[in-house]
């Protein structure tokens, strides 16, 4: 059994006088120890909401969470706030997108690193400071003792993200959720941060859920990839399989809209027209149909089901892209 089994996760946002929004609509996936699983999709597809739901960080009013998330025997979605607080940071930790706003601007970095050590590992004073310095050293921050005394704005962007990662891995969590960890960073720094994450996962056998819109990030480090569209998984496959033979038109669209160095001079990028519909997208058939160039009559009416294949590759499409057609 996998370390984390997410089964039919759904999140709906309800506000009086407004239409209910199905942000996540029956997402299922699983993550094993030492495995890197990606949730990929464009803005509004529900990938961040999925991560917040798993962490129990969604607002208690207005957000309704359904389904289950079995984490080593405990259902993360069924925990009350008190026990969830003990799990967060210790067993499951999260790395956020913007390292500057995720660090408290008026407190030295050191205190923010030791805070979690004090909270979950019962360390105090000198021991915590020593451990914090070691953590910063481990994530590749030079001169950690000095950095501990500095404020977030005195660190560079990459350094801040490293510090944030140090805080997240401080208690050696078994599951890490990285929500767009490289989006706010320079391209050069991005590669370093991804390398660091890969290393941490390999060394400590941590499971990592990588949330990103960037297929480049995914190609570099993820084992399994789940492509999300409008709150549902539309394609799920091993990395090689997905890049070699994408079946869902949306995945193909995503791949075609990435600039490639090996593309010919005259070749143009093909953007996907339109944007995600946010209200009940899956009720009247495939949510991607209005933007799809392979739309057929069967797309409208009933929502398509996941089609499994013998390789573990599955897709949610009634008119999938044939394998040969991939360029």
């Amino acid at each position: 059994m996998a370390l984390l089994d997410v089964e039919d996760l759904s999140v709906t946002f309800q506000r009086r006088g407004q239409r209910t929004v199905h942000a996540v609509d029956g997402v299922s996936f699983s993550v094993d120890a030492g495995e890197v699983v990606a949730l990929v999709g464009e803005s509004g597809c529900g990938k961040s909401v999925t991560s917040l739901a798993l962490m129990g960080l969604l607002p208690r009013r207005g957000a309704k969470v359904g389904g289950s998330a079995n984490f080593d025997g405990t259902d993360l979605l069924a925990q009350d706030q008190r026990s969830m607080r003990d799990i967060r940071g210790r067993d499951v930790a999260m790395i956020f997108q913007d390292p500057l706003s995720s660090l408290n601007p008026v407190i030295p970095v050191g205190i923010q690193v030791t805070e979690v050590l004090v909270r979950h590992r019962g360390m105090s004073g000198d021991a915590a400071r020593k451990e914090a310095a070691e953590l910063l050293d481990r994530v590749g921050i030079p001169d950690p003792r000095r950095r501990l005394k500095e404020y977030p704005h005195q660190l560079s962007g990459g350094m801040r993200q490293r510090a944030l990662i140090a805080i997240a891995v401080a208690c050696r969590p078994r599951l890490l959720i990285a929500d767009e960890p490289t989006t706010a960073l320079d391209v050069t720094i991005q590669a370093q941060i991804l390398e660091l994450l890969k290393e941490l996962v390999r060394d400590s056998n941590t499971a990592l859920i990588m949330i990103t819109h960037d297929l480049g990030v995914v190609a570099g480090m993820c084992d399994t990839i789940n492509v999300l569209y409008a709150g549902r998984v539309v394609e799920s496959a091993q990395r090689r399989e997905l890049f070699a033979a994408p079946r869902h038109p949306y995945t193909v669209g995503l791949l075609r809209s990435i600039p490639r160095l090996d593309a010919g001079r005259g070749e143009k990028l093909t953007p996907i027209p339109g944007s995600v519909r946010d209200v009940l997208p899956w009720v009247e058939g495939c949510a991607f149909a209005p933007r799809c160039n392979r739309r057929i009559d069967a797309c409208v009416g009933a929502p398509p089901a996941m089609v499994p294949t013998h390789t573990g590759h599955s897709y949610r499409c009634v008119n999938p892209v044939p394998v040969e057609e991939k360029q």
């Binding site: 962490m55 960080l57 969830m84 607080r85 003990d86 799990i87 967060r88 940071g89 210790r90 930790a93 999260m94 956020f96 913007d98 706003s101 995720s102 660090l103 408290n104 601007p105 407190i107 205190i111 805070e115 979690v116 909270r119 979950h120 944030l164 805080i167 997240a168």
Partner: peptide, 20 residues
């Protein structure tokens, strides 16, 4: 965000209020 980040680390609410 930093409050969300602190919450995601399991820091207790009164501690978040006072120290963050």
């Amino acid at each position: 965000d930093y409050v969300l980040a602190a919450t995601s680390l399991g820091v207790r609410r009164w501690k978040i209020a006072i120290s963050h």
